[in-house]
């Protein structure tokens, strides 16, 4: 059970990390006014947000088998043969699509006046992003981002279907061997529940720290305090 928990957390952290790194440049392209830049990114996010994660996992894990020859020539087959690699790849691509849209919201929430002021001071695009847009966009995006982390954490349970032994996978195997079905599954449920609400608590703490200057009469993080997890979609 514990080894499964470790794998679940490992997959979550790795996928969030890769997904975020991929999402940041894509989000910048997404808010571009040139269709050449935003259209492909929009297509990517539409595809990954509009289809079930399970199909995406199967498409990459089983689907890569159809191109075995090509992948072998490229020397990539050893990677695609591994369920672990396929799981991280799919989870990262999937979460990146959601994070792009979350960051887009954050970037667009930065007041126009500040961007104009930055340009008027003669800041270059990259400096503007670095000093004005990103620091605020990340803060605006944090509540939605914490939601996404929780959803990804729960989505990792799907990797048990492609033979990986994460928390759900281990629970399935133990349940099948010992026949103590509901005790095992309920233990797994409690573990997921505990970690989910630990993540919720950690992010709330982080948000309060980041929005310290906004607190007071206006109440910066009050709105989402009521609902710990809202639906992603």
């Amino acid at each position: 059970m514990l080894s499964g928990l470790v794998l679940t957390i490992e997959l979550t952290v790795l996928s969030i990390l890769c997904g975020t790194l991929l999402a940041i440049p894509l989000a910048v392209l997404r808010v571009s006014t040139l269709p050449v830049f935003w259209m492909p990114v929009y297509g990517y996010t539409f595809f990954f947000r509009g289809t079930p994660l399970l199909v995406q996992i199967f498409l990459i894990y089983y689907g890569s088998g159809q191109f075995r020859g090509v992948l072998q020539d490229l020397g990539l087959w050893a990677l695609f043969r591994e369920p672990y690699f396929c799981a991280v790849l799919t989870l990262a691509l999937n979460t990146a699509a959601y994070i792009v849209e979350i960051l887009r919201g954050g970037i667009q929430a930065v007041p126009t006046g500040q961007i104009e002021a930055g340009l008027a001071c003669g800041m270059s695009r990259s400096r503007l992003y670095q000093r004005v847009i990103f620091p605020q966009a990340f803060r605006f995006a944090l509540p939605a981002f914490s939601n996404e982390v929780i959803f990804l954490f729960q989505s990792t349970s799907l990797v048990s279907i492609i033979t990986l032994l994460d928390l759900t996978g281990v629970a399935r195997i133990i349940a099948a061997r010992t026949l103590d079905v509901y005790e095992i599954y309920l233990t797994a449920c409690l573990l997921y529940l505990g970690i989910t609400y630990t993540i919720v608590g950690a992010f709330r703490f982080f948000e309060v720290r980041l929005s310290g200057h906004l607190r007071g009469s206006s109440g910066g993080s009050e709105a989402h305090d009521k609902q710990a997890i809202v639906l992603r979609g």
């Binding site: 990792t156 048990s160 759900t168 449920c189 989910t196 609400y197 997890i229």
Partner: peptide, 8 residues
């Protein structure tokens, strides 16, 4: 909301 759908 704290438990994965698959497990449920």
């Amino acid at each position: 909301r704290g438990i994965p759908e698959l497990l449920l």
